[in-house]
Simulated scan of single mutants.
Amino acid sequence: MSSTPAGSRVQLAAEGGRGPRPGGFGPTAVATPANAVTAARLVLAPVVVGLVAASGPSWTVFGLALAVAGSDLLDGWLARRQGPTRAGAFIDPLADKVGVLGVLAACAARGEVSWAPVAVIGARELWMSGYRFRRARQGVSIPARPSAKVKTLLQAAVGGLCLVPPLAGQRGLLDALLWLAALLTVVTGVQYAVDGRRRPGPDEP
């Protein structure tokens, strides 16, 4: 789960062409403190997912997930201070998706929540990743929308609630929140598609 304050990092890194800040890193840097924190989150996210799949919701798993999610605030702060990088712009949202979608899928596999809203969220995220990659290859950068940040926060919040033991049996409530997150996820996907069409690439009319 993640609050993903790195939306600005994605936009800045996609713009490119900016030199490093004094004492910071340029956009092509890979071995940076921010990227190290993000990489650690990417490695730890499957551990959290595995614990959820094996033992279900617990305060221990919730605490670990919260700590992993909190690392997103740290790498975002480091990136703002030292300069965003293209590598960070790629692995940061990847780490977020692995964590959130993995936890939701594990909970669905255990019967804690329904598969349908999880499948909708997963399909949209996969499509969006492919769409942004394709448009980026065409020279088009699609900045993060505020609504997309709200979407990510809602997904993360629902994923976190699924790990709280007292709420584990409240499938009706969790499914309702999941469908709300799925709806917002689809709406933001449509918004991104419209934004992409309004931003023709260098070789497009």
Rank of each mutant, 00 (worst) to 15 (best):
150 V>M: 06
36 A>H: 05
188 T>D: 06
10 V>E: 01
54 A>V: 08
3 S>I: 15
77 W>Y: 15
164 V>T: 06
56 G>F: 03
37 V>R: 04
53 A>P: 04
23 G>I: 11
175 D>R: 09
12 L>D: 00
150 V>K: 04
7 G>A: 09
122 G>E: 08
205 P>G: 04
76 G>A: 10
191 Q>H: 10
101 L>E: 09
7 G>Y: 03
56 G>P: 02
163 L>F: 01
155 Q>C: 03
189 G>F: 10
139 G>M: 07
158 V>N: 06
69 A>L: 08
142 I>P: 01
64 L>G: 09
11 Q>V: 09
144 A>H: 01
117 P>W: 08
178 L>N: 15
99 G>C: 05
119 A>S: 09
13 A>P: 01
86 R>W: 00
156 A>T: 15
106 A>P: 12
5 P>W: 08
81 R>T: 04
129 S>T: 15
15 E>Y: 00
55 S>I: 02
117 P>H: 12
166 P>E: 10
162 C>K: 01
78 L>E: 07
167 L>R: 11
50 G>W: 08
81 R>H: 12
167 L>E: 10
9 R>T: 13
139 G>A: 09
107 C>F: 01
46 P>E: 14
160 G>Y: 04
87 A>Q: 07
128 M>H: 07
98 V>A: 02
66 L>F: 07
44 L>G: 14
61 V>A: 03
21 R>Y: 07
135 R>C: 05
24 G>E: 02
95 A>E: 12
44 L>S: 13
112 E>P: 05
118 V>N: 14
113 V>Y: 05
159 G>H: 02
178 L>R: 15
102 G>P: 12
73 L>T: 11
143 P>L: 00
19 G>C: 02
74 L>D: 04
73 L>F: 10
113 V>P: 05
191 Q>K: 11
55 S>M: 05
94 L>F: 02
138 Q>E: 14
138 Q>S: 10
199 R>K: 13
118 V>Q: 13
200 P>A: 13
21 R>T: 14
127 W>G: 07
92 D>M: 04
136 A>T: 07
180 L>H: 14
22 P>T: 06
94 L>I: 06
76 G>H: 09
195 D>M: 02
106 A>G: 14
115 W>V: 09
202 P>R: 11
19 G>Q: 09
122 G>S: 11
192 Y>R: 15
145 R>P: 07
168 A>N: 11
72 D>I: 09
53 A>Q: 07
39 A>K: 00
67 A>V: 09
181 A>N: 03
155 Q>F: 02
93 P>S: 06
153 L>P: 06
118 V>E: 13
35 N>V: 03
191 Q>R: 12
59 W>M: 09
48 V>K: 12
73 L>W: 13
156 A>E: 12
77 W>C: 05
151 K>T: 03
137 R>T: 05
71 S>L: 10
131 Y>E: 03
120 V>D: 08
116 A>Y: 10
45 A>R: 15
205 P>Q: 01
146 P>H: 13
67 A>F: 05
19 G>M: 04
112 E>G: 08
92 D>W: 01
87 A>P: 05
158 V>F: 03
127 W>K: 04
31 A>N: 14
64 L>A: 10
197 R>W: 10
31 A>I: 12
106 A>R: 15
53 A>R: 02
112 E>H: 15
13 A>F: 01
193 A>L: 13
39 A>S: 06
57 P>V: 07
183 L>S: 14
93 P>C: 05
